[in-house]
C-alpha cells in the first residue's frame, strides 16, 4: 500500500505534559483509519500537528512523499489535507451556499455553484442552500461541516469526532456517507463511539499517554490486551 500521510517521531510537549510523544504513523491510500484512545491520550493534538494547527516540535510529516512538516495550515489544506472541527464550526451567519462556496472557490473550482450543489447533494442537503447555517439543526450543521470538507476535494479528510451529538438514526446515515467517500478520499477518523469505529475502520491506531499503543484491524485491536488495559485502567466511559 502507498502512504498518503506518513509521520515519524512526531512530538509535541506542553510544559511538562507530553501530549504527543514520538508517534510514528502511516495513513494508507484509500483507507478509513480510526484513531482512538482514552481522554487525554493526545488524539486531538496529534491531528492538529498533522493539519498544521499546532507547530511540530520534532519529527517529520510527509504528504505523498513531500515534507510538509513546516508548511502552514492553510497551505496544507491547499495540498489536500482537510480538517473538520470537533466542535461544529460552520459560519452561522452565512448561508449554507456561502459556507460551502468558501471551501470550493479557494482551490480555484471553475463552476463554484455546481461544486456546491454536488457537495450538498452528497450529504443529502439539497434545497437547503439559502438557509442561514446557524438556523440548521445540529445534525445538519455536522453534515454541512462534512460538505465543506468535501468541497475542498481533499486527498485526506480528517474527521474529529464527527458523530458526537448525533442521534442514532443519524449515525447510520453518516456511516454510509463516510463509506461512499473512499477510496477517492482517504479518511482519518477520530471517534469516541467504538461501534462506529469498529464498523467503519479498515485499520485503527490506539494512542495512550501520547504514544502509539497498538495498530491493527478492528479485530486485532479488540483482542489486544494492552488496549483493554488502557481502557479499563483509564476512561471507563469510552468504549
Amino acid at each position: 500500500m502507498v502512504a498518503v500521510i506518513e509521520a515519524r517521531g512526531l512530538t509535541r510537549h506542553f510544559g511538562g505534559l507530553r501530549a504527543v510523544d514520538g508517534v510514528d504513523f502511516r495513513l494508507e491510500q484509500g483507507e478509513i483509519h480510526g484513531l482512538i484512545g482514552p481522554n487525554g491520550a493526545g488524539k486531538t493534538t496529534f491531528v492538529s500537528l498533522l493539519s498544521g494547527r499546532i507547530p511540530v516540535q520534532s519529527g517529520v510529516i510527509t504528504l505523498n512523499g513531500e515534507d510538509i512538516t513546516h508548511l502552514p495550515a492553510h497551505l496544507r489544506v491547499r495540498k489536500g489535507v482537510a480538517y473538520t472541527f470537533q466542535i461544529t464550526s460552520v459560519y452561522p451567519r452565512l448561508t449554507v451556499f456561502d459556507n460551502v462556496a468558501l471551501a470550493a472557490q479557494g482551490r480555484g473550482a471553475g463552476d463554484v455553484a455546481a461544486e456546491v450543489a454536488q457537495a450538498l447533494s452528497r450529504v443529502g442537503m439539497t434545497g437547503l442552500d439559502q438557509s442561514m447555517a446557524g438556523t440548521l439543526s445540529y445534525g445538519h450543521q455536522r453534515l454541512l461541516e462534512v460538505a465543506m470538507g468535501l468541497a475542498l476535494r481533499p486527498l485526506v479528510l480528517i474527521l474529529d469526532e464527527p458523530t458526537q451529538g448525533l442521534a442514532s438514526g443519524e449515525i447510520d446515515g453518516f456511516k454510509a456517507l463516510i463509506r461512499s467517500l473512499v477510496p477517492q478520499t482517504t479518511i482519518l477518523l477520530i471517534e469516541h463511539n467504538m461501534d462506529v469505529v469498529m464498523d467503519l475502520a479498515d485499520r485503527i491506531t490506539v494512542l495512550n499517554f501520547g504514544q502509539v499503543l497498538a495498530v491493527g484491524t478492528p479485530d486485532q485491536i479488540r483482542a489486544n490486551r494492552a488496549v483493554q488495559d488502557a481502557y479499563l485502567g483509564g476512561d471507563h466511559a469510552a468504549g
Partner: peptide, 17 residues
C-alpha cells in the same frame, strides 16, 4: 465572501485554505 469569512471565523477560514 472570503473577507466576511475572516470576520465571522478566522480559524475556520484558515482551515479552508
Amino acid at each position: 465572501r472570503v473577507m466576511v469569512a475572516m470576520r465571522e471565523n478566522e480559524e475556520r477560514s484558515r482551515m479552508l485554505g
